[in-house]
């Protein structure tokens, strides 16, 4: 208790420990000027949410990888694509599968998030939903004046983007791979990268001033662009490719 009081009395000093450059200092000063640090929000709530959501995202991404990976692989491996590509739908089936994959990912993510938030609502944290997360007792100092509910909303948006990105990566791998062994060989490092880098930097402590202000937005835009462009190139090639499996 004494520690809490001491921290509050020396709030500027306490918050400035995090700042290592001018921009971070300015942001902290801005928070102090607006008295956002007086928010009742605490690290217990924030850390609890972050730990839980991190596990949920890991489960979602793993589910998607297992679900989406066979989408092209089965048909190519079992030579069903011969029948598909010579029927009226033809090579457009490649594009239709992308849409199906994205839709399936949306459904899986939504169902898992609904289940998670139903359980999370039993945590009785609703009284903090409208509190600003830049509290002196919080573990995050954000670049933005976000309330807890806004932060939750931001993580949900991030989860959907990561899910679609990973679904597209899985589809790309599935369309290139010739066997399950090859695909697993490619997917394994992707999974490890996703669970460390994606979760660590793009979901956990979103908008924290430890990272540059535009890091989060630019990372998501880059991920979306790289994946969309790669898939477009793959689709263009598929339209003109000889089918020789």
């Amino acid at each position: 208790m004494e520690d809490l009081i001491r921290d509050y009395e020396n709030k500027e000093e306490c918050m400035m420990i995090v700042a290592s450059n001018k921009k971070q200092e300015l942001r902290i000063k801005g928070i102090l000027e607006k008295s956002l640090e007086t928010s009742v929000f605490s690290s217990v709530i924030f850390d609890n949410y972050n730990t839980l959501i991190k596990s949920v995202v890991a489960t979602i991404l793993l589910c998607l990888m297992f679900m989406i990976t066979p989408i092209y692989l089965i048909d190519n491996k079992d030579k069903i694509s011969y029948i598909q590509y010579t029927s009226k739908i033809g090579r457009k089936i490649f594009e239709k599968k992308i849409i199906a994959g994205i839709l399936a990912s949306f459904i899986v993510v939504t169902l898992q998030l609904i289940s998670f938030f139903i359980i999370y609502s039993l945590n009785n944290t609703s009284m903090f939903l409208n509190s600003n997360i830049n509290s002196i007792y919080s573990t995050i100092i954000s670049w933005y004046d976000l309330t807890f509910i806004q932060y939750i909303f931001l993580t949900v948006v991030g989860i959907y983007i990561l899910a679609f990105v990973l679904a597209l990566i899985s589809m790309l791998v599935s369309s290139i791979g010739k066997s399950y062994i090859t695909v697993i060989g490619i997917q394994l490092p992707i999974a490890l990268f996703s669970f460390t880098i994606f979760l660590g930097y793009l979901i956990h402590f979103m908008t924290d001033i430890r990272y540059p202000k535009y890091f989060l937005g630019l990372s998501y835009i880059t991920l979306i662009l790289i994946n969309t462009i790669s898939m477009k190139i793959r689709w263009k090639r598929e339209r003109k490719a000889d089918i020789l499996y």
Partner: peptide, 18 residues
């Protein structure tokens, strides 16, 4: 394209099925 494939029936040498 699809107009031609609409009047096409094909049984490949290696017939793939689920």
């Amino acid at each position: 394209g699809d107009e031609y494939r609409d009047i096409l029936g094909y049984l490949p040498q290696e017939f793939g099925y689920y």
